[in-house]
């Protein structure tokens, strides 16, 4: 994306609106890394940038620590929060507006039509020694990557984050400023889920056993998720204790059943859970499986419409009934 356009629009937002903080992407000191940055004055907006490396979602910063950012900035007196949001982020925002009662007008959304982002693990695996990445651009199915004194061309497919491959909402669904022209959407694809559904029950169980046994229970998947914002998480309660603290296959399975079920009809598809996992658990498979079923059966897509009632707070008398005695 054109950095100049992004910076100018961000500055314009500061001039136009009563903004306490703008959450955006900044380049990190090492390699291909991108960090969330918190811009509090107009001049700091020069640090902003956007590239296919911006794979992280910024939405969870709105609700961290009981929404400390939303309390406004006491020094400047600003009240609103501005945020750079891709398609998936905008869905998360829609969910938050509906669930948390965050007033829509309190958030200024700089919408970015997204062509998919790069999986950091993949690009670091390919170029482990890169020190200072200067540019990553995308054109016609290729990434053009410059770092240190090298430049490389890599097919997009090789580096694209897995959950981006199936993205049906690359364009922001809600925004105040649109930073680029909208991109084409492929529509949702669930071929990988369908493949897994064909597996025998035992086979699928073995597959997940192998994965869940690795889980460290570091809670990164939960904490990074823009929609896991409860102050008192059911996964941590001791009385009653639904999930024990022991880290073993059974408790890990309990943990992941609870985590993914709590996102049923809410997951925005941003892939944060999978991105942050230190042991590479394919958590988006669980989220997307539920997303697919919910879409097919209940014709419901999370975060697609500001006026939707939550999935589990609504019903249709014609909901499936044939599994019931």
């Amino acid at each position: 994306m054109d950095k100049e356009k992004l910076v100018n629009e961000a500055k314009a937002v500061f001039s136009r609106e009563d903004v306490a903080c703008l959450i955006g992407y900044g380049k990190d000191s090492i390699g291909f890394r991108v960090s969330p940055i918190f811009i509090r004055t107009r001049d700091e907006a020069d640090q902003l940038f956007f590239s296919p490396l911006c794979s992280l979602s910024l939405v969870n910063y709105l609700t961290l620590e009981k929404g400390v950012l939303l309390e406004g900035n006491k020094e400047t007196g600003g009240e609103k929060i501005a945020i750079v949001a891709r398609g998936c982020d905008s869905r998360a925002l829609i969910q938050l507006f509906a669930e948390r009662g965050i007033p829509r007008e309190q958030v200024v959304i700089l919408g970015v039509p997204c062509r998919g982002t790069i999986d950091l693990k993949k690009i670091e695996g390919k170029f482990p020694d890169a020190r200072n990445c200067t540019e990553v651009t995308e054109a016609e199915g290729m990434y053009y990557i410059r770092f240190d004194n090298e430049s490389h061309e890599v097919p997009k497919e090789e580096l694209l984050a897995d959950h981006c491959k199936h993205c049906a909402f690359p364009n922001p669904l809600v925004y105040d400023v649109l930073l680029e022209d909208l991109v084409d959407s492929k529509g949702a694809a669930y071929s990988d889920i369908e493949e897994m559904e064909k597996m025998a029950l035992e086979e699928r169980h073995e597959y997940w056993k192998d994965k869940f046994a690795r889980c460290l229970r570091c809670y990164a998947c939960r904490n990074a998720c823009p929609l896991c914002y409860c102050d008192d998480c059911i996964l941590e309660r001791v009385s009653p204790q639904w999930v024990n603290r022991s880290v073993n296959l059974s408790e890990n399975l309990m943990f992941h059943l609870a985590r993914s079920y709590h996102l049923a009809g809410r997951c925005a598809g941003c892939g944060e859970c999978e991105r942050v996992c230190p042991v590479n658990l394919p958590l988006m498979l669980l989220n997307r499986k539920l997303e697919k079923d919910i879409k097919n059966i209940f014709e419901y897509t999370a975060g697609s419409n500001l006026d939707d009632k939550p999935l589990f707070a609504s019903f249709n008398p014609k909901d499936p009934n044939d599994f019931i005695f």
């Binding site: 897994m196 559904e197 029950l201 035992e202 086979e203 699928r204 169980h205 073995e206 597959y207 997940w208 056993k209 399975l253 992941h256 059943l257 993914s260 079920y261 049923a264 009809g265 669980l286 499986k289 539920l290 079923d293 919910i294 059966i297 209940f298 999935l311 589990f312 707070a313 019903f315 008398p317 909901d319 499936p320 009934n321 599994f323 019931i324």
Partner: peptide, 18 residues
């Protein structure tokens, strides 16, 4: 009705993890 939805979805999740 609300329970039916929740249980339907949860059954699918159970099946998916084997």
């Amino acid at each position: 009705y609300l329970a039916r939805r929740k249980i339907f979805v949860f059954r699918n999740l159970l099946e998916f993890v084997g």
